[in-house]
Design a protein around this nucleic acid. Sequence first.
DNA 1: CCAAAAGTGTTTTAATTACACCCATGA
DNA 2: TCATGGGTGTAATTAAAACACTTTTGG
Lengths: 247, 247
Amino acid sequence: MHKLNPSLSVDCVIFGLDTNEQSLKILVYEREIFPIEGSGNKNLKFPGSLVIEDEDLDESAYRILNELTGLKNVYLKQFSAFGKPDRIKFDEEREWSEKHYGIKINRVVTIAYYALIRIDKHNPEQKQIKDKLRWINIDNASNLAFDHSHILSVALETLRRDLIFQSAISLELLPKKFTLNHLQSLYEIILGNKLDKRNFRKKIAKAGYIVPIGEKQTGVAHKPAMLYRFDKRKFNKNNEGIATFFI
Amino acid sequence: MHKLNPSLSVDCVIFGLDTNEQSLKILVYEREIFPIEGSGNKNLKFPGSLVIEDEDLDESAYRILNELTGLKNVYLKQFSAFGKPDRIKFDEEREWSEKHYGIKINRVVTIAYYALIRIDKHNPEQKQIKDKLRWINIDNASNLAFDHSHILSVALETLRRDLIFQSAISLELLPKKFTLNHLQSLYEIILGNKLDKRNFRKKIAKAGYIVPIGEKQTGVAHKPAMLYRFDKRKFNKNNEGIATFFI
DNA sequence: CCAAAAGTGTTTTAATTACACCCATGA
DNA sequence: TCATGGGTGTAATTAAAACACTTTTGG
């Protein structure tokens, strides 16, 4: 049995792209600390846990995410540490935490990671019995547990900045073959605004590492779109260590 | 007496602009863990310390910086957490740390902050007797203690990005009245490359919040330069929450 | 043949880059 | 009068933004 560090945790903000609903969601646990009625989102928290002593932080984040959600092979990026003494706002939350971990808790510093995945590709598993793991829309995510609303806003800011300046992260969200309209709608969902189709395509063409594969969509009741793929070689050639200004 | 958290520290990367030497420096402590001869920079570390239980992280950073260097009123920005189990690379370092803090140490996660100051304006004090606080040039800062070289490289990357996208940080580095050549040379020192004088001035003019005060330099053996100041009101008006793309 | 989404160019405006000479001062 | 750094403008290129119609398919 590994020993947990009582003042150090990892939290994972998992952004999920819902391609059906065209929305951006986050993965949260619903606990039953507060009465369900009228408690808003106070019962919702990000997957996270205390870290094991002597465990590498990044590894810890992957382990915790996997243990809680079954998710594997998602790219987690550390984006900030949160350590206000009043992060635990309610006595009920402290009690829950101490019961949950079986140790006494004071101030907990959490190292926050984010990931961006396709909801239909990565299917989280219901690993905990008492709590419900589920996706909620970022627009309905105010007043989460602890300081998790604050963590979310920093995460979202970081995600959007990274999407613009390090365009490769968007490719995690797409199937091998995708249409340019898929790619564009992905940007629109994450950035939260519309983009001009023709100007968008100009950028893609100039970037050079998103290439047509000569196939078309099938089975759609409209003009089938050309399919594209990400050309890793061209990407690496053009972007050796340099952030690309994409949109 | 406050209780220290044995697995949580703060480290401060203090960048100092040396306007005489036209160079960027960092503030380090020289300890005597390793023999002075032939140990390179292994004795040099950033000012930092374990944090007190239940102490706010940001406050901790200010407190530690002040206690170690006497520095006050510098803007510290948290930029990353470092938590590899092998951050302490040598037995001598672990021994030094345990002696220094008087407690047993396992893996320590450090929350890293950076600041950017003018060396001639902020004068650090020699607070510790055994160790020597001093400025070293970033070009001579390879192979620092622990993982501090890695911390430095992340700090420097963050600093340069922030300088470009959040241009207000540069104003900490200037006296109330400054010339445009001062400002330009500041950018050149931090970014590590030369900029075109005329194009630089075009950007300043467009930004709009760096305004001439109608005075000129005196006592210089060449054409005296026009003095400028930062107009906070105009800056806030133009930059409400939006990062400005400055250079 | 209709509905639905795909695909395609041009024009205007703004931003970026490259580049060289005269000016004001103190010594 | 000379050495030193200060200060200025233009032309060419590239990037950004705005904008609407035709095409292909399945139903």
